[in-house]
Simulated scan of single mutants.
Amino acid sequence: MLSKSKFLLPVLAGALAFQSCNKGADDKFYTTADGLSYRIYEQNDKGEYENRGEIDANDTTGARMDQVVTMHMSYRTESDSLLFDSRQQNQPIMIPVMEPTFKGSLENALTMMRAGDSGVFKISADSLFAKTFNQPMPPFIKPGSHFTFYLKAEKVQSKEAAIADQQKMFEEQMVAQQERAKEQIKIDDAKIQEYIKEKGLKNVQKTDAGVYYVITQPGKGEKAKAGDNVSVHYKLSFLDGKELESSYDNPMNGGQPFTFPLGQGQVIQGWDDGIAQLSKGSKAILLVPSPLAYGEQARGEQMPANSILRFDVELVDIAKAASAPDAQPGMGNKK
């Protein structure tokens, strides 16, 4: 999770944006013996940022080898096109300090930064792609040009401390996401109830988790249990009727039903929850609130975040698992 490439490679996927750089009177760049152009700012007693000036080559107050710098980072092309900005992801990134991949590299820049400092660095685009990114330079980057990196160092710490901070951050994000999901499911529930009334759906039932379902054709036999392999035909649509996909005419699977182990977390929770209510041969409508589907995660332009989904499903087959009575739902990994 602390690999530098994880945070640098988005340059190839970032959308280009054009913004002007703000320049003040204190914008003089200095250059190291390795050719790294920089200006670094520190906060004074009034909380204002001042240019630290030229950094002595023997200065050891910056980040050291094997430490981790937690920072916000953005970088732009020489023509001032924004390629990446960690603030757009609403969280800082962590980069371990490593041996420089070339003279005047980003690794050199990190060793000049102290916790609280802000820095602007000009780094060769050719060398970045050849030595650090290990990728061909895309055609929209001019050969011989440079990238301008803007760094704001929040913390400089050991790897152990950084990993502990990262775990704490993930836990806090998870709690916040769960709280947002609780509010979102209330909003979605009201919309689903309105949809049910509008469409005149009868015999609607609701699971404890919040999935509404209507059995349009009852099946026979027992219901599937956690661990059983179920084969399901489905048609996916939004509440406005727009169809997104269907297993019946999906060329990728030759029109065959989708098969998965029930209750193992390999599908959205709305499916694990809804399909468990059906017997073999059943046809049903599942109305899945967004927190039980893809939640805040947008899936391309076709499926925005917080999308309520309708599935018209048919439980074609149930293959009993040998250890089904001992299987526990939700223990697997969602694909």
Rank of each mutant, 00 (worst) to 15 (best):
E183H: 07
K182T: 06
K283E: 06
G219A: 11
D272S: 10
D80K: 11
F133T: 05
M137V: 14
A321N: 11
V11D: 07
Y75E: 05
Y150P: 02
M73H: 09
V267D: 12
D45E: 08
I196G: 02
F121C: 08
D85C: 13
A324W: 08
S282I: 00
Q297N: 14
N134S: 09
E172N: 03
T70E: 15
L262T: 09
D165I: 04
T31M: 13
K4G: 03
N306C: 05
G295P: 10
Y195D: 09
N51S: 15
A298K: 10
D312I: 01
D228T: 08
R310S: 14
E194P: 00
K159C: 02
G221Y: 04
Q184V: 13
D189W: 01
Q135P: 03
G254E: 07
S118P: 00
K235I: 10
Q173H: 00
I268T: 13
S247P: 09
M73G: 10
Q19M: 05
I163N: 12
A224R: 11
N250Q: 06
R180C: 01
D240F: 02
M252L: 06
D117A: 08
Q167E: 13
I185G: 09
A153G: 01
K225G: 15
F238K: 13
D249S: 13
Q277T: 15
D59R: 06
N203C: 03
S127F: 05
I215N: 00
K220D: 04
S127I: 02
L309W: 08
V68Y: 01
N306K: 08
S124N: 12
E50V: 11
